[in-house]
Amino acid sequence: MNEFLASFSPISWLVDPLSHDFMRRALMVSGLVGGVCGFLSCYMTLKGWALMGDAVSHAVMPGVVVAYALGLPFSIGAFVFGVGSVALIGFVKQKSRVKEDTIIGLVFTGFFALGLVLVSKIKSNIDLMHILFGSPLGISLSDVRQTIIISGIVVSILLIFRRDLMLYCFDPTHARSIGINTGLLHYLLLSVLSLAAVAGLQTVGIILVVAMLITPGATAYLLTDRFDRMTFLAIISSSISSILGVYISYWSDIETGGSIVLVQTAIFLFAFLFAPRYGLLKSQRSISP
């Protein structure tokens, strides 16, 4: 142990992996995807769309498989199925008496099961484990390109509609009464969610992508009362935890997706305990003076 500490140098811990091509790629993609998902996570947590995020991220699965089978970019298939699942949820909700959370659970597991069946039936070189758990260390150049394009689209939309989306989350009635098209914002946010889920799939996989879409927002929400600051904190914490997760995964030889999400969860726990105003320890102190 002492030997390890003596030989441990933070600089080489950070720099050494950069000599590998695959690590440079993994770190860049993870940091980028982390930032993008972190940005979106603010809207997901404030709108109360955690379950929706879970649903959409699972529902993209058959889309990815079909797109691969047809030789299309996987993001297109994922996008179609992501938005389709949401439209289906809305349709069933309108036409039946079943409660919304039940329908969400029903639709996303249905889509996910369809994806699993398709993977087993369609002869292709898709690795199920890569879709389910992500594989940032083995990401191909064309996937990197696709992820950059998706991230660019998501960030542009969020930047342009930043204020409108905030208003839509806070007070949709007011938004409508001043002539803002809230229906458009609703579907815009859902489309962005589908795209971000596809991007996140690259790094942490379908199962864990919902963590990328809510944890950074939840963490930032505990740390500030300002929306702009919350956005900033979510992006930073999400990016850093993604990059850190990849490093830890490399040095400790553990699963990358799990490693990234665990770092995010750890940061959340830290905020949960020690946040200046909303942390657990702070509120206890103020109760017993």
Partner: peptide, 15 residues
Amino acid sequence: FPVSVWEVVMMGRYG
């Protein structure tokens, strides 16, 4: 919701 009073009133100007 993490908005200040100022920001809420500013929402009246969005349109």
